[in-house]
Amino acid sequence: MTVLALDGVSAAPWDEPLLVDIRLQVSAGEVVALIGPNGAGKSSLLRLIAGDFSASAGTLAFGGQPLADWPRRELAQHLAFLPQLSLLNFPYTVEEVVLLGRTPHATGARADREIAHHALVATDTLGLRNRLYTQLSGGERQRVQLARVFAQIWDSGDMAGKLLLLDEPTAALDLAHQQQLAGAIAGIAERGCAVLLVVHDVNLAAAVGNRLLVLDRGRQVASGTPAEVLTAALFRDLFHAEVLVQQHPNGRQPLVIGL
């Protein structure tokens, strides 16, 4: 089942072309990782899908319907977006922040708190539940915001038809929490949720993504399984970096070794 389909999508919200002719299909349960140099348009692609600006050409379909035709609230029940930066500077408790993710739903306070509990567990923030958000560290805040977007699309049963957009969710996380996040993403993907995420660490991208999409200056330059995409030639052309690409000892993915 195709959850998200972009066909020939271009966007130029500030007159400069930001994205050009993007073609992308994401199926239920699939995890697609976006990689590319700084300024390649990775965040812009996520923001375009989240509806922050509109496409100048091409079609975006979500769940078989043009994205623009979705009623606001219904869309929010199916699509959640974690931006790179959080502006929140009011002293909500962590649990209150996570419960904000339940705003588009009318599931009732009890069900909401249960779902918030699951989301807190999935992001290892249960212990922070009663702390004030403004007094947390950067990594802790990022995990709390993650819990919020998890709660927004959480369903204890089948999650097919839902899409989670994550913009550098691991940027501020320590190694243990990066691994835990990878596990949490795999967990919701197993239940049918589609995930599209931006990561800078290519090895992490290869570990969590079924598929990688490489962007450069707003254009899509490569797409495929990690083994197909991650080659020494790609890194030379795209990142102007010399790397060694080897088989990961776990045998499931390529391993990129920088200097």
Binding site: R72, A76, Q77, L87, L88, L100
Partner: peptide, 12 residues
Amino acid sequence: LLGESEARHLGI
């Protein structure tokens, strides 16, 4: 309070 974009993504 989360930000305008975030509020929009929550269906507001």
